[in-house]
Design a protein around this nucleic acid. Structure first.
Length: 482
RNA sequence: GCUCCCAUCGUCCAGGGGUCUAGGACAUCACCCUUUCAAGGUGGAGACCGGAGUUCGAACCUCCGUGGGAGCGCCA
């Protein structure tokens, strides 16, 4: 039984990189009929917050993730918050001490820093070892600790040997002996450090495949050693390359929108975000680009995961979101667009409800134009506000020789008695039949006269939606000046 | 500094020794369609980091160089 986990730290919003890691884990689990576990890595009490955890979960649900075991829905290997697993780590840490794979140290952080600088000045890698740390373990120091109620820090004794890792993505990786020194597994606060907690949890939660970012590849050396010390069976590892910003450095806030929540706010669909993320370092065997979750699950294999880093450039995501938007039916489209219209103050929720049919057509008329829902208000503003008249329009119309067409149109509109979309089409046919005119120039300027813009919703829809009276009013201004 | 990872169009990917005059997608440009703008269609331009080696043959294998990234915390 395949078991994978996604283990975020609740220190902020879900990042696109984190979402991609979660997605790969999820796809791998589903593809293999395995389990997907959500574990919260909140051992850093300084930075972890409950709000972050909630937002993380909320965002993941929005994206469409579901997990078989996790902090909110439980499971057989819980608890799923590291902050609730303190005793387990403590127990395992002392188990290592008893076995001789770890030791207690009575050293103060300042002293450690001193040692470190000393080694650095001697141009040696700053590694700590038992002998070095034992110097601080005096009866006086122990008494001091006892008096202050402090606990010794537990160091893991790094074995003097090479470690080999067969990574599913990176291939065989060898960590040579002496690369790192002994390291802390249990802090003086009694809380475990990352590299220790991860191993204990992955083992106890029976994780079979650890799929994570390759920024953890170096850490794997420590984890390999801990796995061995604890006598746990090793899971498979797959280190996915990172997502970089456009300048090639690690993706961060300064590269713009990097949180999934931000994309949600901008009006991105979860389907397009997931689809786009799946394509970063992975590809469909037939190079398909737009695909459903089912298709991704069906096709996902680690073998097809690329080992090089990807630069995050959301232009393609934007395009993809447009593709997904165009597949939405008009009701769904309206439902998603209305909050943006209300937020922009163009309509109240009550108005929107009362004029739903009209609004649905208005939104449908811009379906092919928008890529994100936050573009809706700007795009449909023509329906709410009359553009201010510009005499340049008249000049341009005269120059185009389309003025007779405008006059004819004006007369026909005044004479019109019904205003359905087919009626409008017929009306235009009648105009262009009566007056010889360049369609391109005529319709272009008509749009400008009606909206003040050179692009926007479908012209027929604009005419239909603003209504005959508005049409006359807006045309009048130009006809009067011809 | 030390250790590890990575290297194909501007960007995301395909390519797992000959079928590569290197394929697709986004972006870009041109044209077509069209009742404007879009959407859609067609086409163009655009890349194997450098150097050795292995081989009859290398984008694909090896080594070196260069460039980029990550890790080296009582952060995760």
């Amino acid at each position: 039984m395949v078991r994978v986990r996604f283990a975020p730290s609740p220190t902020g919003y879900l990042h696109v990189g984190g979402a991609r890691t979660a997605l790969f884990n999820y796809l791998f689990a589903k593809h293999n009929n395995g389990k997907f576990v959500l574990r919260i890595e909140d051992t850093d009490v300084e930075r972890s917050t409950k709000e972050s955890e909630n937002s993380l979960i909320e965002t993941m649900k929005w994206l469409g993730f579901d997990w078989d075991e996790g902090p909110d829905n439980g499971g057989n290997c819980g608890p799923y918050r590291q902050s609730e697993r303190g005793e387990i780590y403590m127990e395992k840490a002392y188990e290592l001490v008893e076995k001789g794979f770890a030791y207690e140290a009575y050293v103060y952080p300042e002293e450690l820093e001193q040692l470190r600088e000393e080694m650095l000045s001697r141009k040696v890698s700053p590694h700590y070892d038992e002998e070095m740390l034992a110097a601080f373990d005096t009866p006086e120091r122990r008494a001091e600790y006892a008096q202050k109620g402090m606990k010794p820090v537990i160091y893991f004794k790094m074995p003097k040997k090479d470690f080999k890792l067969k990574d599913l993505i990176k291939g065989e990786v060898t960590f040579k002996e002496g690369t790192i020194g002994d390291f802390v597994i249990l802090r003086s606060s009694g809380l475990p450090t990352y590299n220790f907690a991860v191993v204990v949890d992955d083992a106890l939660m029976k994780i079979t495949h650890v799929i994570r970012g390759d920024d953890h590849l170096s850490n794997t050396l420590r984890q390999l050693a801990v796995f061995e010390g604890l006598g746990f069976e090793l899971p498979e590892f797959a280190h996915v390359s990172m997502i970089l910003g456009p300048d090639g450095s690690r993706l961060s806030k300064r590269h713009g929108a990097t949180s999934v929540e931000k994309y949600r706010e901008m009006g991105y669909l979860p389907e397009s975000v997931m689809n786009y993320l799946a394509l970063l370092s992975w590809s469909h065997p037939e190079e398909k680009e737009i695909m459903s979750m089912e298709e991704m699950i069906k096709q996902f294999t680690i073998e097809r995961v690329n080992s090089s880093a990807a630069i995050y450039d959301d232009q393609k995501l934007r395009w993809m979101n447009g593709m997904y938007i165009r597949e939405l039916d008009d009701d769904k489209l309206a439902k998603l667009a209305i909050p943006y219209i209300v937020a922009a103050g163009q309509m109240t929720q009550e108005d929107a409800d009362a004029n739903y049919k009209w609004l649905r057509e208005a939104v449908a008329s811009i379906k092919k134009k928008i890529h994100q829902f936050d573009e809706v208000p700007e795009m449909i503003s023509v329906f709410f506000e009359e553009p201010s008249f510009n005499i340049e329009w008249t000049k341009q119309i005269k120059e185009d020789d389309t003025d007779p067409a405008f006059i004819e149109l004006y007369n026909q509109v005044k004479a019109a008695d019904s205003w359905s979309i087919p009626d409008i089409y017929n009306l235009f046919k009648a105009v262009t039949k009566t007056v010889k005119v360049s369609n391109k120039k005529f319709y272009h300027m008509l749009r400008v006269v009606l909206t003040g813009e050179e692009d926007g919703p479908e012209l027929v829809n604009i005419i239909h939606l603003i209504g005959r009276n508005q049409m006359i009013k807006r045309l009048e201004r130009v006809v009067d000046t011809i």
